[in-house]
């Protein structure tokens, strides 16, 4: 792999006496999907919030695009191209898809100094972005309130890519979605990554992690308990990493098993 998009070195964070993270190292490459797994309270959300500027680490370094960065707020992280996508929270359901896509960054043309919205230009830009990502939405002129949770997520992700996002963070993005919508959501995530975007996705569902991730990172009690390529591991092994049953490789294990009578 060439230089990583994001590199975390020895990130720690405590909340008073609680040590939520105690020295996490993590790398995310361009176009790479990293699934973060771990038990409840392992520190996954805390880690993701630190990356997105929502929390500051107590210690450790964060290197983004080769530069050491520390984000004081989500807005700063966003300006650098890092964003958390939350379901619904970042959309205005009372306006249409186009308006949401261009929220706060509308294309305008000034007439006598008065900025006027350029609907046609915005429409075709959204149409193109959606087509690039293979997202199909019945009409870009429908208000977002009429769209499914999965479609909303797709809009947010496409919007993120369109506006030059580089690393997207997803904290249990499919928790509220049905089977079919989750499948499409995973598809979208894959396509986003294929456009060169780094993705960190937190999930509790093993199958999702294996379906979408290039690499699986397991957090356990605030440290990285496993960091494996998805293609080279198995759900069983990941479960063992999560529960802390064994921090050894399957090879070691067979050897051990082989020795005992």
């Amino acid at each position: 792999m060439t230089e990583a998009l994001l590199k975390l070195e020895n990130i720690a964070r405590n909340f008073g006496a609680i040590q939520a993270l105690r020295g996490v190292d993590l790398e995310v490459g361009r176009g790479e999907v990293v699934a973060l797994l771990g038990d409840n309270g392992a520190g996954k959300s805390t880690l993701v919030k630190i990356i997105a500027g929502g929390l500051q680490p107590s210690s450790g370094r964060m290197i983004f695009e080769g530069m050491e960065r520390s984000f004081a707020s989500p807005a700063e992280a966003k300006a650098a191209g890092i964003e958390t996508v939350y379901q619904d929270l970042s959309l205005c359901t009372n306006v249409d898809v186009v308006a949401n896509f261009f929220m706060g960054r509308e294309i305008v043309k000034k007439y006598f100094g008065i900025p006027v919205l350029q609907e046609a230009a915005m429409y075709s830009a959204v149409e193109k972005a959606m087509a690039n990502a293979g997202t199909r939405i019945p009409s870009l002129r429908t208000n977002v309130e009429h769209l499914s949770g999965g479609q909303r997520q797709a809009i947010e992700l496409n919007r993120f890519v369109h506006w030059g996002g580089k690393l997207v963070l997803l904290d249990e993005p499919f928790a509220a979605l049905g089977v079919e919508q989750t499948r499409r959501g995973l598809d979208t995530v894959r396509r986003i990554a294929d456009q060169g975007i780094g993705v960190v996705i937190i999930t509790h569902i093993m199958a999702q992690a294996f379906q979408v991730a290039d690499r699986i990172v397991v957090i356990r009690q605030g440290v990285v308990a496993g960091n494996v390529r998805a293609a080279e591991t198995s759900p069983d092994e990941v479960v063992r990493m999560i529960t802390g049953e064994a921090l050894r490789s399957p090879a070691q294990e067979t050897r051990l098993n082989g020795r005992s009578p």
Binding site: P74, K78, L89, S90, L91, C92, T93, N94, V95, A99, M103, G104, R105
Partner: peptide
């Protein structure tokens, strides 16, 4: 948009 979702508007 603010009337629809002030938080989202702010984030944008």
């Amino acid at each position: 948009m603010i009337g629809g979702n002030p938080v989202a508007s702010f984030r944008a």
